[in-house]
Simulated scan of single mutants.
Amino acid sequence: MQNTLAGGTRRRALAAFALAGALSTLGLTGCGDSSAASGGTPAATPSAGAVAATLTVKDPWVKAAKAGTMTAAFAILVNDTGADITVVGAESTASPMELHEMTTKEGKMVMQPKEGGFVIKAKSTHELGPGGDHLMLMNPSAAIEAGDQVPFTLKLGDGTTLPFTAIAKPFAGAGESYDPGMSMPASGMPMSPMASAAP
């Protein structure tokens, strides 16, 4: 009989504890609701798929190339905002991608990954072109023929993305190559080739 009473007391104590917890939870929820009602809004977190509305890609094009041959995409990146924007990566269904730059080493132009990405200053533009910064297609799975429309997505430092499509064009330039270990005399690289690309 004593065990039965003790068991009943224990069950009642547990029930009271559970009820107190439920009331406490309801109280916390009520606080959250009143905060929202008073105008408080939770901070928005941009998703990885959010589309950037702060950067414009102007005159994008790709150097036509055979399947498996490294090539590059170019454009003028326009930042009309009051803050710097950083392009930290790029993607394409046509090929694995890297951000690259051309730099001078021992009197020759050499290609290398762009550390820190491309920074487009506030209210300015940044040119991607042969002989300078470019979007590197490391290993196209199929030939990129003149006239092809190639999809790209830029990944920005704030977590947003910017999709665009570039047209493939034949371009000889100064005979530059995008093969590994490529180098050439520094004076042989055109720095503003946009007008030289065949339509």
Results as ranks from 00 to 15, higher is better:
Ala50Lys: 04
Ala197Gly: 02
Met109Pro: 12
Met70Asp: 11
Asn3Phe: 13
Ser196Tyr: 09
Pro190Met: 02
Asp148Ala: 05
Ala53Gln: 14
Leu137Cys: 01
Ile167Cys: 10
Gln112Leu: 05
Asp80Ala: 13
Ala20Arg: 14
Val87Ser: 01
Ser92Val: 05
Ser141Arg: 09
Ala15Val: 14
Thr45Asp: 14
Ala65His: 01
Ala198Cys: 13
Ser124Pro: 14
Phe164Arg: 03
Gly129Ala: 12
Phe164Trp: 03
Met97Ser: 04
Thr104Phe: 07
Ala94His: 04
Lys114Ala: 07
Phe17Thr: 14
Ala143Leu: 04
Thr86Trp: 09
Thr54Ser: 14
Asp158Met: 06
Pro185His: 07
Ala174Cys: 10
Met109Thr: 14
Gly157Gln: 06
Lys114Gly: 06
Ala73Glu: 05
Ala13Trp: 11
Phe152Asn: 00
Ala72Met: 04
Leu128Phe: 02
Asn79Ala: 04
Phe118Arg: 01
Ala6Gly: 15
Gly132Trp: 04
Glu101Trp: 08
Val51Phe: 10
Ala15Tyr: 10
Asp179Ser: 14
Ala48Met: 08
Thr71Leu: 01
Glu101Met: 11
Thr86Gly: 06
Lys123Val: 11
Thr160Lys: 06
Ala186His: 05
Thr81Lys: 05
Gly129Arg: 09
Ser141Met: 08
Thr25Ile: 15
Ala65Ser: 02
Cys31Glu: 12
Pro130Ile: 07
